[in-house]
C-alpha cells in the first residue's frame, strides 16, 4: 500500500515541477514543463487505476468473468494511448520552438508578444 503514497507524492511533484517550468520565460522550459504535466497525468491514471501485485487478469476457460482482485489492464491501455499522443504533440512542439528560435533568434516568451498587443 505504501507504493501508492509514494506514487501520489511523485504525481504531485511532477505537477508542481511542470507548472513551475510552464511559468518560466524560456520556451524550452515551457515545452519541458508541458511534457512533465503529461507524465503527471499518465501516472495519475496509473495510480487511480489501483495497484495490484501478482494478480494478472487471466481467467480459467470455464469462467465467464474475472473474480476477486486482479490487475486492471484498462488504465495501462489508456496510458499507452496518452503516451503515444503526447509523444506526437511533443515532437510538434519541439519543431515549433526550433522554428521560432531560427526565425526570431530568441527563446524568451516575453519577446513573443506581438500578436497580443493592440497596436
Amino acid at each position: 500500500m505504501t507504493v501508492e503514497v509514494e506514487l501520489a507524492l511523485t504525481v504531485g511533484g511532477l505537477y508542481a515541477a511542470g507548472l513551475y517550468m510552464v511559468l518560466r520565460r524560456s520556451i524550452v522550459k515551457l515545452v519541458i514543463g508541458l511534457a512533465l504535466l503529461g507524465h503527471a497525468a499518465n501516472l495519475l491514471i496509473f495510480t487511480m487505476g489501483g495497484l495490484v501485485r501478482g494478480q494478472p487478469p487471466l481467467m480459467h476457460p470455464w469462467d465467464t468473468r474475472l473474480w476477486g482482485r486482479f490487475a486492471d489492464p484498462v488504465p495501462e491501455a489508456l496510458i499507452l494511448t496518452a503516451i503515444v499522443i503526447g509523444f506526437g504533440v511533443q515532437a510538434f512542439a519541439i519543431v515549433l520552438i526550433k522554428r521560432i528560435y531560427l526565425d526570431m533568434g530568441t527563446e524568451d516568451l516575453r519577446e513573443l508578444q506581438s500578436t497580443d498587443i493592440t497596436p
Binding site: 510552464v22 520556451i27 515551457l30 508541458l34 504535466l37 503529461g38 503527471a40 497525468a41 499518465n42 495519475l44 491514471i45 496509473f46 495510480t47 487511480m48 487505476g49 488504465p75 489508456l78 496518452a82 504533440v89 510538434f92 512542439a93 515549433l96 520552438i97 522554428r99 521560432i100 526565425d103 526570431m104 516568451l109 513573443l112 508578444q113 506581438s114 500578436t115 497580443d116
Partner: peptide, 24 residues
C-alpha cells in the same frame, strides 16, 4: 508562430487537465 505557441501551450494544458479528470 507566436500565435501557435500560445495556442499549443494552453490547449496542451487543457488536455492534461482532461486526462487527469479521466484518470480520477
Amino acid at each position: 508562430l507566436e500565435g501557435t505557441t500560445k495556442y499549443v501551450t494552453l490547449n496542451l494544458l487543457s488536455s492534461t487537465l482532461f486526462l487527469a479528470g479521466i484518470g480520477v
